[in-house]
Amino acid sequence: MSMFGQVYVKDNKYKLKGDFHHLTPNIPIRNADEGWKLMGVTNPRDMTYIHSYGGEAPFFEALGEGKLLATRCDNPDCEFKGTIYEPFRIHCADCLGKNTIIDITELAKTTSKVHTFMVCERAGAFNILDKPVKFINIEFEGIATILMSYLSVGDPEIGMKVLPIFRTKNPTCTILDLSWVPDGTKKEELPEGFTF
């Protein structure tokens, strides 16, 4: 019986278990207008990638714990020391020094505003968010960058105050564990598995 491919790390090596690909036969493509002559063939692929978050792993782990982490350049020799990044950058864009990880959950709860947004009626293959997807780009006080995420309750507007919510129940360990709701949203309105 097949099982999803699973991976863990031991001695800094990947250990694999389960099925990472599934065999599906090639099927001929034929031309209905010309006596079903051969035009080509399908090439099915069903693969599982093994992806490292590297130095960003603490960010994705923290989402499932209800925390929003960012990074800050603390290099005293950097011209732009003190710059805070969200999205989380492992290294400073200017001096390339290793940034310090900081917790900005409280800052996000008090200063987050929608910079811009869009409502997406269509999606690409493998999308797992409900449609329409409501992208929002969030600006924070004192942070140099603007984070892209999605709104789970209500309709977005530029300048709207929003609060972060976190998938703390069965987190997926992806960026989808972070979402946002309008300020004033009640706990019982949050999507399944999410908490403030």
Binding site: H51, G124, N127, I128, V133, F135, M148, S149, T174
Partner: peptide, 10 residues
Amino acid sequence: KDWESPLGHI
């Protein structure tokens, strides 16, 4: 692919 693509893949 970690920060943007999962948001709708579009």
